[in-house]
């Protein structure tokens, strides 16, 4: 076997890896915003998002009791007729949108034979991949922000009362969490678009992965937890250990991380995602909201988890793309 060329030592490429990042980003962003696919995705978002929002607004208008976080309930309350809250709807709208934006990012360039021409311009592959990712993420951010503003606007009109500052702040944090969640799925679909030359295969794999985490993983996680659990739980410690295992496993799914982050942000009463020991309950006023900084502290691991996941998956796509041959 011929040895692999030793090029680690001494050989360093010159010039910034971000040369040309701006133009790539601008082109991707413009392409996304003007594409027909974007129209379809927007329609999808409106259809799936409008219903929960409309019905929760309907319900909230009849609420008479004092609720200092009424505005945030628009996002989280699920109407009795159909138990789907806006946040729950987002939990599957966002992945589908992100996958729709990213599944053909690289392989379509390859299939249209534009890849080698673009890479023969003075840019590194780094800039191309990062530009595509950021272009998709910016598109996602624009859509999410628009949606967020629409929901707030509808709330203003139909509830007839302005949101308090802290509600807006919590809502903004929720928006960031939603964008980070979208980033994970965008990075995943980008990864598949680098691995597979066929756009259909790449879309199928990305959607398959999403379905796996959305439908199967909760069941698998609980099955594993049951398998590890002792046949008879004798103490609170044992119970906690089993519950902990279940939580850890389910948190491998980005959807779980997102849901927990959202619950922590939009339900200020949330103090923990697992059980609370009596010792932790000491001095707690049941149902009393946490201040924003405490809620942020609570969901910090979830947020960093989402962002780390996004970076890890993007890095994998990056490594594979660097090694890929550009020739047809």
């Amino acid at each position: 076997m011929p040895r692999k060329p030793a090029r680690s030592a001494g050989i360093r490429r010159e010039g910034s890896p971000f040369t040309g990042l701006g133009p790539v980003f601008m082109k991707e962003f413009a392409d996304h915003l003007s594409s027909a696919r974007m129209m379809v995705l927007m329609l999808f978002v409106i259809v799936f998002g409008a219903f929960p929002v409309a019905s929760s607004l309907q319900q909230l208008r009849t609420v008479t009791e004092q609720d200092s976080y009424l505005f945030l309930r628009i996002f989280t309350s699920a109407p009795e007729s159909l138990p789907i809250s806006f946040v729950f709807a987002l939990n599957f709208i966002i992945p589908v949108m992100a996958i729709g934006l990213g599944f053909d990012a690289v392989n379509s360039e390859f299939n249209r034979r534009t890849l080698s021409r673009v890479l023969s311009q003075p840019i590194y592959r780094d800039a191309l991949l990062l530009g595509k990712f950021l272009g998709g993420l910016a598109t996602l951010a624009v859509v999410m922000t628009a949606l967020w503003l629409i929901v707030f606007g509808a709330g203003l009109l139909l509830l007839g009362l302005p949101p308090r500052g802290v509600e807006v702040a919590r809502g903004a944090c929720f928006l960031l969490a939603a964008i980070a969640y979208g980033g994970v799925w965008l990075a995943a679909s980008l990864l598949f678009s680098v691995i597979f030359r066929s756009t259909a295969t790449s879309a199928l794999c990305a959607l398959g992965l999403w379905l796996f985490f959305f439908l199967l993983w909760p069941m698998i996680a609980s099955a594993i937890t049951l398998g590890f659990a002792p046949s008879q739980i004798r103490s609170a410690e044992e119970y906690l250990a089993v519950e902990q295992l279940g939580l850890v496993l389910s948190r491998f799914s980005p959807g779980t991380l997102f849901s927990e982050a959202v619950v922590g942000l939009l339900n200020p009463e949330t103090r923990t995602f697992g059980s609370m020991l009596p010792a932790q309950m000491r001095g707690v006023i049941p149902g009393a909201p946490l201040p924003l900084d405490q809620s942020l502290l609570l969901i910090w691991p979830q947020m960093t988890g989402l962002i780390a996941g996004m970076i890890v998956v993007f890095a994998a796509a990056y490594v594979i793309f660097q090694r890929e041959e550009v020739r047809a």
């Binding site: 090029r7 050989i11 360093r12 490429r13 010159e14 010039g15 040369t19 023969s120 311009q121 003075p122 840019i123 590194y124």
Partner: peptide, 8 residues
């Protein structure tokens, strides 16, 4: 190899 941007 080292200066692809200059070449391209």
């Amino acid at each position: 190899v080292r200066q692809p941007l200059e070449v391209k």
